[in-house]
């Protein structure tokens, strides 16, 4: 078996008492070092998929699950979540709801303590994690006294310190203001540069395309598209049919460029290709 970070095969899930499946026959693969973005309308099953990848489904949430999920070489369905903390970590949407400790450093230490990381090692990891998310110097503060963006960065640091192979984030910026969003995206960028393997669910499509190698489009539990951002957005009409949109620059380019293969997905690229077109 080749070494894949995530391998999902024919994943189907139904909540108890639900009339239909929330996830329908989903399959995809992700390599190490790649970041996957999951997009789709509300109710498409994005969060459910993230919970399944993390193993919260089926280990803490009941339901009928079929198919196979291998994350970092481990069969998620067969191992309890506590056995998977080194394989994957999940950052949730609500920043404050993830914080339970009395100070910033203890928040990061909490997960480490649970898995029995020795104290000396703990101190080192806390320092490194807080450094990465730009919260060095905040060690003694109460997590409740932080801004939303700082809280979310703390949540990321707490997951990161446990050093999971794969980072998963479920709409980490949705509840933040523009400043908070920028702060979190900056952290994501530096993680990406360090070769993070990750899964990010995000509404803000303009930002998402800057950090993703692959995008998975969900609609009513089905995976309708999977590929690189370029591949996904070259078929904008299909996305529109599912009430989704592309980045603004992509939407403009899609309308005015003849060569659909060449449409830009991020701003810098767009400025270049538009300049080129206008010069011609």
């Amino acid at each position: 078996m080749e070494n894949k970070a995530i391998k999902v095969e024919n994943l189907t899930f139904r909540y108890p008492d639900a009339e239909s499946d929330t996830l329908k026959n989903i399959s995809f693969e992700l390599d190490y070092g790649e970041v996957l973005g999951i997009i789709g309308p509300n109710g498409a099953g994005k969060t459910t998929l993230a919970m399944a990848l993390k193993g919260l489904i089926p280990h803490t949430v009941d339901g009928e699950i079929q198919g196979k999920i291998i994350v970092d070489g481990k069969d998620v369905l067969k191992h309890d979540i506590s056995e998977q903390v080194l394989n994957s970590g999940l950052v949730f949407q609500d920043p404050e709801g993830q914080l339970s400790q009395m100070s910033v450093e203890e928040e990061v230490a909490f997960g480490l303590g649970n898995i029995g990381v020795p104290r000396a090692e703990m101190v080192k990891r806390i320092e490194k994690a807080l450094q990465t998310v730009g919260l060095a110097g905040f060690e003694k503060r109460s997590p409740l006294a932080l801004s939303g963006g700082q809280q979310q960065r703390l949540a990321i640091a707490s997951v990161m310190a446990m050093e999971p192979s794969i980072m998963m984030m479920d709409e980490p910026t949705t509840m933040l203001d523009p400043v908070g969003k920028n702060e979190v995206f900056k952290v994501l960028k530096s993680l990406k540069e360090k070769g993070m393997t990750g899964v990010i669910i995000e509404h803000e499509i303009e930002r998402l395309t800057m950090y993703c190698d692959k995008i998975l489009v969900l609609h009513e539990g089905e995976s309708i598209l999977f590929g690189t951002p370029k591949e996904i957005f070259s078929d904008l009409m299909l996305l529109k049919k599912f009430k989704l949109r592309g980045p603004q620059v992509t939407e403009v380019a899609y309308e005015v460029f003849n060569d659909k293969e060449q449409i830009p997905v991020v701003l810098d690229e767009a400025v270049q290709s538009f300049s080129k077109e206008l010069k011609a």
């Binding site: 280990h59 979540i81 506590s82 903390v85 970590g89 997960g111 029995g116 707490s158």
Partner: peptide
């Protein structure tokens, strides 16, 4: 808590 290895 589950994700942070609370029940490990």
């Amino acid at each position: 808590l589950e994700c942070r290895g609370f029940s490990s």
